[in-house]
Each structure stands twice: as C-alpha cells, then as structure tokens.
Nucleic acid binder design. Structure first.
Length: 135
DNA sequence: TTGTGTTTTACGACCTC
DNA sequence: GAGGTCGTAAAACACAA
C-alpha cells in the first residue's frame, strides 16, 4: 500500500493513498451488508480475500455503510414527521375556522333570543370558545 | 481550468458488552 | 479487548462558471 507523508516532519502522517472501491467490490459488499448489518469475523476475512482488500478496510466500509444507512433513516423519519405535522396544522386551521363560524352562529342566535325576550342574559361567547382550548 | 459542494475512505476518541 | 458509534479530515469525484 502506498503512503504519503505530512509536510510537517515533526508529525509525519501515514495516510494510505486512498482508492475508491470499484463497482464489483461495492456490489459484493452491498450484497453482504443487505444480508447482515453486522460483520462476523469469518465473513470479514472471506470478503477481504474475495475483494483483495485488508480486513480493516472491510470493517471500515461496514462502519461507514451503517452510518450512511442511519442518516438515510433519520431523513426518512424527518420527512414522515414533517408530513404528519403539515396534516395536523391543516386540521388545526380547519377547526379554528369551524370554531369561528360556530361563534358567529351562536352570536346570531343570542341576538335573536335577546330581541325576542330582553330578560334573557347573553352568554359571552368568547368564554365558550376559551373552554374549547386545550391546556 | 478551477472553485465549490458532495461523497467516500479512513481514523481517533469514546462507549458497550 | 474486540467491535460498535460518532465526529471529522482529507482524497476522490461531480459539475457549474
């Protein structure tokens, strides 16, 4: 394996000259990953042998693949929650409109009653709607 | 080209069993 | 202690300007 060195001679970096895995290597790793998210030792050694990689590289690939899957899952969850939130907000708007309309109707009925019988005490509709509010 | 954003490989620190 | 996650560096790559 090729190595490159840091320009800082006090702290030489031993970083391997990285090469991306080819499509065949990725295909085999993906197939293996889909059958088991956790890498067994014997499986790692077999994969490394078949792919011409170091067992350490197979380990790293699995770690990174799990991390990518986790990010993908979180993104999907986020989208799902966002859709649910949008739906709840839409329902909330609809209910608010309904409350407003009912308050209006109640007002009209109270007005009609008070005209028909002035001795009736009007209910403050604002209090009625307040009772509908959740804590 | 080249500047820039994204993806992939690799590793160290820390955690769990 | 082996192997996991998490955060990150940096190489590899894609692509617009």
């Amino acid at each position: 394996m090729d190595f490159q060195f840091s320009s800082n001679e006090n702290r030489p970096l031993m970083k391997p000259n990285r090469k991306r895995l080819n499509q065949d290597q990725i295909r085999l790793l993906e197939t293996s990953f889909n059958s088991n998210r956790k890498l067994q030792v014997d499986c790692k050694l077999e994969l490394a042998r078949r792919l011409g990689l170091l067992p350490r590289q197979v380990t790293i690939w699995y770690q990174n693949r799990r991390a990518r899957e986790k990010i993908h899952t979180i993104e999907l969850d986020h989208k799902t929650i966002q859709l649910e939130l949008d739906s709840v907000l839409a329902e909330n708007r609809r209910l608010e409109q309904e409350v407003c309309m009912l308050k209006h109707e109640l007002n009209k009925v109270q007005q009609m009653l008070s005209v028909a019988n002035p001795s009736i005490t009007l209910l403050p509709c604002v209090n009625i709607s307040d009772r509908l509010k959740l804590p």
